[in-house]
Structures are given as structure tokens and as C-alpha cells.
Computed example of a mutant assay.
Amino acid sequence: MTSRKSLKSRVRARMDKTGESYTTALRRILEKAGHPQVSPPTGRPAGAIGTSKVSDLTVRERTGRGWDGWFTLLDTWGATGRTHTEIARWLVQEHQVDNWSAQNITVAYEQERGMRAPGQNSAGYYSATGSKTIAVPVDRLYEAFADAAERERWLPGELRVRTATAPKSFRADWQDGSTRIAVGFVAKGDAKAQVALIHEKLADADTAARMKVFWRERLAALKTLLEP
């Protein structure tokens, strides 16, 4: 906590001196310290922030604000001097953001501000993400995860369901229980919906890369199964 507050003070001091934005000032300080690998990423996908694959439109639909809006609000609150848990809790309690969105916003913010490596969380674990838009109602898409018989048709492996809120979110322990998945669902009209998934607590970057490929393939299989 102390080191983050110190970094924040240095960034603010540089902003006052140079007139740079928060992101630019942070990047310059980290580069001078010999840590260019954790500087805010460039060349982001259109409509996305940092390494997040969730579009600005999806974030806005789920939370009422886009990426820039949330990041500006978090900067004003002083989120660079807070822990991951504090940021996520603040989003839920003060702004009524659902848990899945709060985690996604927090991770994207930390990566964008150079507070963590892409794919790595504050505890040192990694995560893999995946998303897919499928031409079925959101209730049907949710059922493909929540109903065990339906799930077995496209997703091998044992799951222990932790929480399931129709038709918005689904959380479960994966296989041996050492990792878990968090899934969110958003309606894109009466006959189209998007699923966005995070596989959390992965041991290393190689495992995260492998599971990213796995989920890309499984979500493609789900789309093939559900669409006419």
C-alpha cells in the first residue's frame, strides 16, 4: 500500500510539472525506473481498454459508464493507491456495479495504470478470458451453462457451481477446485446474446495461454450447438 501511494504522489507531481496525463506520467516514471514492461499498453483493440476484450459498449450497457468514464472516476477516487479488493468493493458498494463487472473493471484499470502485468492478478495468479456473441435469447445462453445436461454437450470437465443468477451470471470451481470461472451474460436483443468468461487463479502465463485457446474452442462449439 505504501509503495503505491508513493508512486501515485510521484505521478501527480510529474503531472503538475509537465502537464502530462496520468497515463503518460506513469509510463515515463516506470520507464525511468527500468520497468517498461508494466507501462500502460498501446495499440489496444478498438473499443476496448488495456488487455480487456470487453468492448466499451458492453461495459456501458452493463454498468452505465464506458471505460474512460470508469477510469476517470477511479483516478479521482485515488484507486492507484488502493488494493484490488478495495477497488472492486468500492465499485459494488458505491456504484451498484455487479460483481462480475466490478472485477473486470478493476483488473482492466490495474493493467492500464501499470499496477499489474497483463493476465496477472494482485495475488500473482493469472487468468484467461473469452467471449462470444450467439444468436439465441439470453435465457437460452445462460441455460447452456447452468443446466448440467446441457453443459455436458459442449463443455468437458467437472464443475462445482458456486453461484448462478439467471440470466446474468454464473460462477463455478473448475475440475480439481484450484481454479474457477466467472461468466456474465448480456442480451443483444430478443434473439441474440453475448457471453463473457474469465477463468481465474491460473498458476502461470503458459497455463493462461493454453486455457485461452481452450475457451475459444469451447465457446465456438457452444455457438455451433445453439445456433440453427
Rank of each mutant, 00 (worst) to 15 (best):
V54F: 08
V54H: 09
V54M: 12
S55T: 15
D56Y: 00
D56E: 04
D56K: 03
D56W: 00
L57M: 06
L57K: 11
L57C: 06
L57N: 09
T58V: 14
T58Y: 04
T58K: 01
T58C: 03
V59L: 14
V59Y: 02
V59K: 01
V59T: 11
V59G: 05
R60D: 06
R60Y: 09
R60F: 09
R60L: 11
R60S: 10
E61V: 08
E61P: 01
E61H: 05
E61D: 11
R62H: 07
T63M: 04
T63V: 00
T63Y: 05
T63S: 02
G64L: 04
R65M: 10
R65F: 08
R65H: 08
R65K: 10
R65L: 11
G66V: 05
G66W: 01
G66F: 01
G66N: 13
G66R: 06
G66Y: 06
W67K: 02
W67S: 06
W67Q: 00
D68I: 06
D68H: 14
D68R: 14
G69K: 09
G69A: 10
G69D: 11
G69R: 10
G69N: 09
G69W: 09
G69E: 10
W70M: 03
W70Q: 04
W70H: 12
W70R: 08
W70A: 05
F71H: 15
F71A: 08
F71L: 15
F71I: 08
T72S: 13
T72H: 12
T72W: 07
T72V: 14
L73C: 09
L73V: 07
L73S: 12
L73G: 06
L73F: 02
L73W: 04
L73T: 11
L73N: 06
L74C: 00
L74I: 06
L74M: 01
D75C: 12
D75G: 03
T76Q: 15
T76Y: 12
W77N: 10
W77G: 07
W77A: 14
W77H: 13
G78R: 01
G78E: 01
G78V: 05
A79G: 00
A79D: 00
A79F: 01
T80P: 03
T80E: 15
T80G: 05
G81V: 03
R82T: 09
R82L: 14
R82K: 14
R82D: 11
R82C: 12
R82M: 15
R82P: 06
T83N: 08
H84E: 14
H84M: 11
H84Y: 14
H84P: 08
H84I: 09
